[in-house]
Amino acid sequence: MSWVELWVAFQTILTKEIRRFMRIWPQTLVPPVITVTLYFIIFGNLIGSRIGPMDGFNYMEFVVPGLIMMGVITNSYSNVVSSFFGAKFQHSIEELLVSPVPSWVVLAGFVLGGVARGLAVGLIVTLMSLFFTQLQVTNMGLTIAVVFLTSVLFSIFGLINAVFANNFDDISIIPTFVLTPLIYLGGVFYSVSLLPEFWATVSKFNPILYMVNAFRYGVLGVSDISVSFALSMIVLFIVAAFSFALYLLNTGKRIRT
């Protein structure tokens, strides 16, 4: 395929992905907004007002970047895992498999579809947060880079999960038993500096800690860990996950018989 045809194919996949989550917006865009708004009210406003400052900021200011990242991560992941598994389940993935679209374009299309939903939810949550606190972004470039890269990474993870999934249980196991605990223990609601040394060290094996802290640094200018190290980790994870996902698509594992 020529570059123009590849671009058309990529746009087609991306448009289809965006159309899918927009068509079912009550399932895709509304629930995360309601959930995060409840977090704002309960943890930020009601309980947060009784908690002292965290890293020099009041609790609401501290928790907002983490909650935005939580929305971005879970929605990027769930968009790709449900869309790709749905296509596998209905066999509509065969439309792509019989076409001349190379695997890397398929991967890029699905991943950018996940990023589109992750960023849409992130934007809505950010706008909601303005009802509860003033947000002043310290480093806009870094903030956008971190949220974009994180969204890319979790979209790829979603696709890998979908490739291996055999039924609908398999696409909820990872988000429930892996993703949610990692997010909650990734410094969304607290600074790891509050943890005993042992648990602070354990936390450093949690990749989400780096993403939340890098994003928080972009917004508030404070972080528990080195931002350059966090960015390097995210990029490294993306390269590894992208390569693995591409290998799965190229070899047709769990997709072709």
Binding site: S2, E5, Q11, T12, I13, T15, K16, S99, P100
Partner: peptide, 17 residues
């Protein structure tokens, strides 16, 4: 099955560039 008929066809054509 949830896509519209015309969208299915336009999307498929898009896969071929």
């Amino acid at each position: 099955h949830f896509e519209k008929v015309r969208d299915i066809l336009v999307t498929q054509a898009g896969y071929y560039g």
